[in-house]
Design a protein around this nucleic acid. Structure first.
Lengths: 248, 248
DNA sequence: AAAATTTGTATATTGATATAGACAACTATA
DNA sequence: TATAGTTGTCTATATCAATATACAAATTTT
């Protein structure tokens, strides 16, 4: 955003307080509302957005609940939280190295894993027969203790037997693939979309209902171009932006 | 989406009917609901989502209004619309060539233009002094008569005087830049986010309120690395996906 | 100390959202 | 033709969302 005026829409299925909460979050991410500084007074915000003060209060209450703001009677309402993380995506997209410099600690937590027959879409992406066994990993990326991504990943079960255990032990895709003799890999394709977070996303990413997630669907390949991994990742749009790196 | 179960959330600021409408749109984009085929009956959908039949009807009514579905009394409700357009983004991102093969006609319409002093952010991106004059173009990308993008673009006014007229005449950024001796250019950086559409987006992109837009902020440079263009583009997430092309 | 500013609480009213049940209108099929 | 299945309409009720007004409580400024 570059300071384009955007207004509040009524009777669209999204309540005014949620729209205003979204815009305050945006404002924080964009630096319009500085960290640790006071937000404009409720009456001021109400006038700015053209709504009642109580509607602004509902928005603020949601963000206080979410841990983004802190309200103090008589003093004001203060911004607690940070700018958006900037997650780089390119040919050598790696979870951990991508967030270096922005966070002090990060890892991937394995939530669950299972083996299932490949759907048509996954089989095509991995270059195996439809219905062949694939290992499915449900993971959450965490940085400084906060969830920043929620991914579902598929591997050919024949070639990568035990990758689930490797993930649980190492907390890293890159490290896990090393155990299978893959020292380097490239991202072949990424498709990007956005939608409202579903119940699973809300729980795993610690989001408030109504939040938006960025969705990437990606295929990773060996240096020879052999597909090894198919993944769908969800990123909370209010906390993460994706930075597309050209060559690498 | 790859068939992950996701449920409906209550009292989150997003009404149930809008959430269900979103999921039906998703289902169409994913191919879960085939084109021209009948949707499951209202009672079936109501049971599936755990809501009243009338709530499903509200969602369907919104999508009928939007031109995505057609309801016929006694017969069923049918899917009208197509899959999402896939818009490629890479080093040589071009509006027109990117959608070749998916659409038969496309061009960029110039909605308005103005000259203004550069904000800090734009000045930094373009490598000019803060406050220096920049030309701002408001454009809409159209394919087969449907709006697919809404962009705000800035050029250094000194170097690109008359670029607004060139855009109006050619309907193409690439063709306009040729008039200034720029036969090729590269995308230096792209930052990606998502948010609810604002009033301007809704009108320009012919969206229903509550829709989500993908937002890209990009800088284009000459082959020598000299910045020439700064742009923020909005894409309707329900109709467009972004495909990241690795090298090119 | 007083005044002004700010967040917190309370009550009342209106419209949108969601549920429930019943039945009409239309279509396809047994 | 009769029946089952579908969308369309209607009435009623409860809850959520938003507005309006007033005042309390805490803090900062005058």
């Amino acid at each position: 955003m570059v300071g384009l005026a955007s207004s509040i829409e009524r009777r669209n299925g999204v309540s005014l307080w949620r729209q205003i909460a979204d815009r305050i979050l945006q404002g924080i991410a964009n630096g319009d509302f500085a960290e640790n500084a006071a937000l404009p007074a409720e009456m001021v915000l109400a006038e700015r957005y053209g709504v009642n003060r109580h509607t602004v209060r509902s928005a603020i209450a949601a963000l206080v609940q979410e841990g983004v703001l802190r309200a103090e009677q008589g003093r004001g309402t203060f911004v607690l939280s940070r700018k958006r993380l900037s997650y780089p995506i390119g040919a050598r997209t790696r979870f951990s190295t991508g967030l270096q410099g922005q966070t002090s600690e990060r890892h991937i937590a394995l939530l669950s894993s299972s083996t299932e027959p490949a759907s048509r879409r996954i089989a095509e992406a991995l270059g195996i027969a439809k219905g062949a066994a694939v290992i499915r990993l449900e993971t959450r990326g965490e940085a400084d203790g906060h969830p920043v991504s929620r991914a579902t990943t598929w591997f050919d079960a024949k070639r990568f037997a035990g990758v689930d255990r490797a993930m649980a032990e190492t907390g890293s895709i890159t490290a896990s693939l090393k155990r299978f003799g893959i020292n380097d890999y490239l991202r072949q394709s990424t498709v990007l979309s956005a939608r409202h977070a579903d119940a699973d996303d809300l729980a795993a990413l610690d989001l408030q209902p109504g939040a938006i997630v960025l969705v990437t669907v990606a295929v990773n390949v060996t240096l020879d171009g052999e597909p090894i991994q198919f993944a769908e990742s969800r990123f909370p749009a209010e906390r993460v932006e994706l930075r597309l790196s050209a060559g690498d």
